[in-house]
């Protein structure tokens, strides 16, 4: 075989091998692209959390409270008074408290002095820690109470002031524009769903002090609720 012919054959083999390779790779990519058109990507979409404890019952109560207490409707009414809370919950105080038992890791009890609605330093720290540990939760509940000393009317007002003190503090500290849509405020006075001794085991702002039902109920129970409605 002469030099020129060998040269030509080699050249053709080289060109053909390259051409076939590049053409097949490129057309395969074009074919895959065409097949993928219109298919939705398999990527999760960002959403608020919806934990296992968000039972149907809890969601029903949550929705009633949020609606009746003026949160989801954006109305001017903020919070539920004891009578409203009882009506909204449509259940006994014990059952109402039981709804919150799965929140032991998420909740805290902000304790107050007797006949006082002033947050002390430890309460402020625990409140800030709890509120900042929001994660994917959508709603923050503040459920304030009072111990039975004094008149019912006075305790109703006292628990209202305690709840408001908590709300004012987080409003000032965190400047969250959504606060009116995410904080559910209930003040129960001494009348409904009082905390019993088992809540002494929960995170409290005065965990070093003695814990009786009187001390427990001079408080605001706070918790982020990881439920999506």
């Amino acid at each position: 075989m002469n030099t020129g012919r060998t040269h030509l054959i080699l050249l053709l083999v080289t060109v053909a091998a390259m051409g076939v390779s590049v053409a097949s790779w490129t057309r395969a990519a074009a074919s895959r692209l065409a097949e993928s058109q219109g298919k939705l990507p398999e990527v999760a979409t960002a959403s608020a959390s919806d934990m296992n404890y968000c039972s149907g019952d809890l969601k029903v109560i949550l929705k009633r409270v949020l609606t009746s207490c003026g949160l989801t409707t954006g109305g001017s009414t903020r919070g539920c008074q004891p009578l409203q809370a009882r009506q909204v919950a449509s259940m006994s105080g014990g059952d109402f408290n039981a709804l919150f038992s799965p929140l032991a890791d998420r909740a805290a009890i902000i304790q107050f002095d007797k006949d006082s609605a002033d947050l002390d330093a430890a309460s402020a720290v625990l409140l800030e820690q709890t509120f900042s540990d929001r994660r994917g939760a959508s709603y923050f509940f503040v459920v304030s109470r009072a111990s039975p000393e004094g008149s019912t009317e006075h305790n109703r007002d006292l628990s209202h002031r305690r709840g408001t003190a908590v709300l004012d503090h987080i409003r000032a500290k965190f400047q969250d524009p959504d606060i009116d849509q995410e904080v559910g405020l209930l003040w129960l006075g001494e009348e409904f769903a009082q905390l019993d001794q088992q809540f002494c085991q929960w995170k409290r702002s005065r965990s070093g002090d003695g814990c009786g039902t009187a001390e427990l109920n001079r408080s605001s129970f706070i918790a982020w609720i990881d439920c999506r409605l």
């Binding site: 990507p41 990527v43 979409t45 960002a46 900042s132 929001r134 994660r135 994917g136």
Partner: peptide, 18 residues
Amino acid sequence: RARVNKGLRWIVANSLPV
């Protein structure tokens, strides 16, 4: 920490892919 959380909520509000 609350500000980081707010950023994540902005992402949720816009339904962005994760």
